[in-house]
Computed example of a mutant assay.
Amino acid sequence: MKKLPAKLQQKIDHRKANNALRELHTKKVPVDFSSNDYLGFSKSKSIFNESHRFLTGHDIFLNGATGSRLLSGNHNLFTIIEAMLSGFHNSDAALLFNSGYDANIGFFSSVPQRGDLILYDEYSHASIRDGISMCHAKAYKFKHNDLSALERLMRRYSKSDTASYDHIYIVTESVFSMDGDSPDLAALSSLCKTYNAFLVVDEAHAIGVFGERGEGLIQSLGLEPSVFARIVTYGKALGCHGAAILCSEALKQYLINFSRSFIYTTALPPHSLATIQASYNALIHTVNRKTLQDNIQLFKTRVSSTKLKPIFIESFSAIHCCIIPGNSRVKSIAKHLQESGFDVKPILSPTVPKGQERLRFCLHAYNTEKEIMEVLQLLTTFV
């Protein structure tokens, strides 16, 4: 094989020099504080078995979709699952994508047009930022969860200004993946109404965790009528794979015609759709969400009673982050925790800004009180 081009090798060497090189690991650490499997659904035998029964009950014995949905891959399960999703989430329509990344890329690369403006939270996920970079609209970030800063930008770029835009899209997440915090969604919705802006919310880390049935934060607050599009993903609390955009019928039709990550990819296989269906059925009846909320409260209470509180970011979600500046230091502490049996991952720069390196604790319904107490006691010792 030919050597890696010099420019690429220099980038790898730079990462190594900054102790920021990403690597794949297969070693399993016994106690999970790192996965997004908040409810334990990925390991559920009942969901696995129900998926199989669902497929055989519909006389489906296919391993793959065979093509894109616009060609040969649009089997009848898509109609069934999308109807279920729109009903569950109180949405006019739903459109399934192969992943949350595909959904965000597909939406942001095709919906905002030249002459439009996108204002997005500075901590928005990479998939949102990548999609925005592919469209022709102007885009500016606003300070994380700072609605005053956002309104100043909206006022500056509103129709009353000489440099007005055709449409304004406001983009945020209901739970941010790196901080675990949330914006004031009700106030944000009101702000968008005042300025006639289109609100787009990624609910990846809220689905399954918040709401009476795990429907997410937007719906639990009754804000779904004021949101232009919601992105929900299934690789986290629902423990499977895929994503959907919840929207109007008109937007669904537009995405089918213009979203390239939808048009030019092989559709999800039937088994993925059956697992989504089974996971939603489990979501309605599970007691795991209550157990998860109890664990979140226990974790917060324990942090508040120790000297760790000042270095933790305030969060009511399943994600809790402890700021430990420096790639070398945070990796060292993570290694100590892992060697003690607790799978806590370090988040390094440049994934987060330099000086904001952190340990990221993901809480689950299956974490025990003993595990939570022990990992925080160890962290107190190491920090």
Results as ranks from 00 to 15, higher is better:
10 Q>F: 06
11 K>I: 08
15 R>A: 14
19 N>I: 08
21 L>A: 09
28 K>E: 15
38 Y>N: 04
38 Y>S: 00
39 L>M: 08
42 S>R: 11
46 S>D: 13
48 F>M: 06
51 S>D: 07
55 L>D: 01
66 T>C: 11
67 G>L: 11
76 N>M: 12
89 H>I: 06
94 A>F: 07
98 N>A: 04
100 G>R: 04
106 G>N: 00
107 F>N: 01
111 V>C: 05
114 R>K: 15
121 D>S: 13
123 Y>E: 09
127 S>Q: 11
128 I>A: 09
129 R>K: 15
132 I>S: 06
133 S>E: 12
137 A>F: 00
137 A>L: 04
137 A>M: 02
138 K>W: 00
142 F>S: 07
143 K>R: 13
150 L>Q: 11
150 L>M: 07
152 R>I: 06
153 L>F: 07
154 M>H: 02
155 R>H: 10
157 Y>W: 13
160 S>D: 14
168 I>Q: 01
172 T>Y: 02
173 E>F: 01
174 S>C: 07
177 S>R: 00
178 M>Q: 10
191 L>D: 00
201 V>G: 00
201 V>Q: 01
205 H>K: 12
207 I>V: 14
215 E>V: 08
221 L>N: 08
227 V>G: 04
227 V>L: 07
233 T>H: 04
237 A>F: 07
243 A>T: 04
251 L>C: 04
284 I>Q: 14
292 L>G: 05
297 Q>H: 13
300 K>I: 15
310 P>R: 10
310 P>C: 08
313 I>N: 11
317 S>P: 06
320 H>T: 09
322 C>R: 05
327 N>Y: 02
329 R>L: 12
332 S>G: 04
333 I>G: 03
344 V>N: 11
345 K>I: 14
358 R>W: 02
364 H>T: 06
364 H>V: 07
377 Q>N: 15
382 F>V: 04
383 V>W: 14
